[in-house]
Amino acid sequence: MRIGTLKTDYAADEALFDTRLQKLLILLACAAAVLFPFVASPYWLFLACLCAINVASATGLNILTGYTGLVSLGQAAFMSVGAYTVAVLEIHAGTPFLLNLLVGGLLTALVGIGVGIPSLRVKGLYLAIATIAASVVLHFVFAHWPLTGGMQGLSMPPARLFGLALDQPFQLYWLILPVTALMVLGAANLFRTRVGRAFIAIRDRDISAEVLGIPLLRYKLMSFAVSSFYAGLAGGLWAYFFRVVTPESFPLVNSIFYLAAIIVGGMGTILGGILGAVFMTMVPELLKFVAGLVTPFYPDALALLAPVRTIVFGALIVGFLIFEPHGLAEIWRRIRRFFHLWPFRT
């Protein structure tokens, strides 16, 4: 048990990682992330990149839904805006990838603000439905606009860095992971300041927040902007990763996937967005693995993979909401507490 964490220095107390253990864990995680690509197979690198992209997007959704309480079923559609922007810029302008990503993010933020405008008048579920409507409209636009290549979509060249094409998971890893890490760090910072507090206040009790000095519309739109900026960046990374963007790349079920990720991980915690996105990305792989194991005994197992995955996703959403509404992050917290107290108490 830790005794005597008396803090007189507020700067230390306000730090992101305030215990020595936390600092150590973060350092270890960074070291592992740097070493990983040198030991992992392409398959695991592929998964790592996919996880990172999903972490980026889930973190964005967590800002909007988990922290601000505005449910969105449009995260995948927002990602498509970023992905298409990046693809179009890469194909037609050939500008540097970081610039493309940034433009993709900003453009998505604008779209997000547009979608968020009804949020002052309509709440909760109505808003969720408005985001579905926005997804439908965006899908239509991308499927019919010549610039975005219609139903065929766009195939794009890889990102280039000093003439080197980033087209293997190994190289892309060094693009995707740092960007994701910065995004997560930014999100964590956000909630150390008045902006993040305003978001949470809106979630917890938005009408009294107004009387306490928070202009609701402004902060709701800001939350939409940040969240869709994140989605746009994630979509841009996605585009560089897969290099083919079609209207079917970002269906409504993907939006549900991200919602599930933050529910399973833990809404309204940064750690939750990370854990949830990684977990949900790995579940299908795990199912694939299991299907591979049972195929010798049950040859149709692979055919059942898709529906079983659908069921597992649904069951995870329902199960976590009912039994562990604070998600994996809460389980993690309990484990930590157990070890802090151990061996004094159980």
Partner: peptide
């Protein structure tokens, strides 16, 4: 949170 209106920090 009470201090919100008097702070300047932007996004």
């Amino acid at each position: 949170l009470g201090r919100h209106a008097h702070m300047r920090t932007g996004l």
